[in-house]
């Protein structure tokens, strides 16, 4: 298909092609067929990804009964109904509380452990690391019964604390391993020279490492937030009263009221995805850097 151009390049004597030349060769590679091989699959993939998302946006902003393919005139009626009538205002607050608490706890504990992994040697370090990685294979569904019993014993069932603890513990190993990576990327010498200047280890960390660690903290925290925000199984198992539901549970009940109100369902879906979209915009470049196979979980 594009063989002719490749042959051209092949016959050119290029033992040590100068950069400009190489660039030209790469440019020439873009034949018609080659471009088709890029844009056709790309368009198809993007349509497959974006049309379903658009469908939800369409239903959320369109008045009930309308069949227009563009949500115009825009109505916020669906949001009002779902926020007040279906209690999504309450669910949203609950979800935020759980996700933020889980973010803070798992990031702080992750930072402590991550520092130990990155900077200190201690006996059992590898065992610790392997155990942390192994936990990533423990399925959430398998933990429903034993965790329910533990929380029941602690009088935490039907409390948001059960969700905070469960989400934190499930995400903690990943936070820790990611954090160790970020800390390792901060040069040790910076910290050491701060110590030479008379800082203790803790002050050296706070004054020198912490500021440089900011992007890492945001990334690790975002991952933790998204994972807690999206969790459904724990919430439906541990929480029984409606005023403590989280957004995914509320959404699952809207789904249950089948066929009734698709506008409300779509609006609820948009509410569920809104905070995550903001964080995703930041976090997605870390995904592609591949520093976090474990983050790509789900």
């Amino acid at each position: 298909m594009s063989l002719a151009t490749h042959d051209d390049v092949g016959q050119a004597p290029v033992p040590a092609a100068p950069p400009a030349r190489r660039h030209a060769a790469r440019k020439r590679r873009r034949s018609m067929g080659d471009r088709l091989m890029l844009w056709l699959p790309l368009t198809l993939f993007l349509l497959f990804t974006l049309v379903p998302l658009y469908w939800m946006v369409l239903f959320a902003f369109r008045p009930p009964g309308s069949t227009a393919l563009v949500p115009w005139p825009i109505t916020l009626e669906n949001f009002r109904r779902v926020w007040e009538g279906s209690g999504f205002g309450v669910y949203f607050r609950n979800s935020i509380a759980v996700a933020v608490a889980s973010l803070v706890v798992s990031t702080v504990i992750g930072m402590l452990g991550g520092y130990a992994l990155a900077r200190l040697t201690f006996r059992g370090k590898n065992v610790f690391l392997v155990i942390m990685l192994c936990t990533q294979f423990i399925p959430g569904a398998m933990m429903l019964i034993p965790l329910f019993q533990i929380f029941n014993g602690l009088y935490l069932t039907n409390s948001l604390w059960s969700l905070i603890i469960a989400d934190t513990v499930f995400h903690l190993p990943l936070s820790l391993v990611l954090m160790a990576g970020f800390i390792r990327n901060v040069p040790v010498t910076l910290e050491e020279s701060a110590q030479v200047d008379g800082c203790g280890r803790i002050r050296a960390f706070c004054a020198v490492v912490l500021p440089l660690l900011k992007p890492g903290i945001v990334a690790v925290g975002s991952f933790a937030f998204i994972s807690a925000w999206n969790n459904f199984l724990f919430a439906i198992m541990f929480i029984s009263s409606q005023d403590r539901f989280t957004v995914p549970v509320g959404l699952s009940y809207l789904l249950g009221e089948f066929g009734s109100d698709f506008g409300a369902l779509a609006a609820g879906g948009l509410i569920a995805v809104a905070p995550v979209v903001v964080l995703f915009a930041y976090v997605q470049r870390f995904l592609i850097q591949g520093l976090s196979a474990g983050a790509v979980k789900g």
Binding site: T49, L53, I226, W229, N230, N231, F232, P248, L251, S252, L255, G269, A272, V273, V276, V277, L279, F280, V283, Q284, L287, I288, V296, G298
Partner: peptide, 10 residues
Amino acid sequence: FSPWAVSGIL
């Protein structure tokens, strides 16, 4: 990659 951030329920 945006579906990555979307939950199973959504």
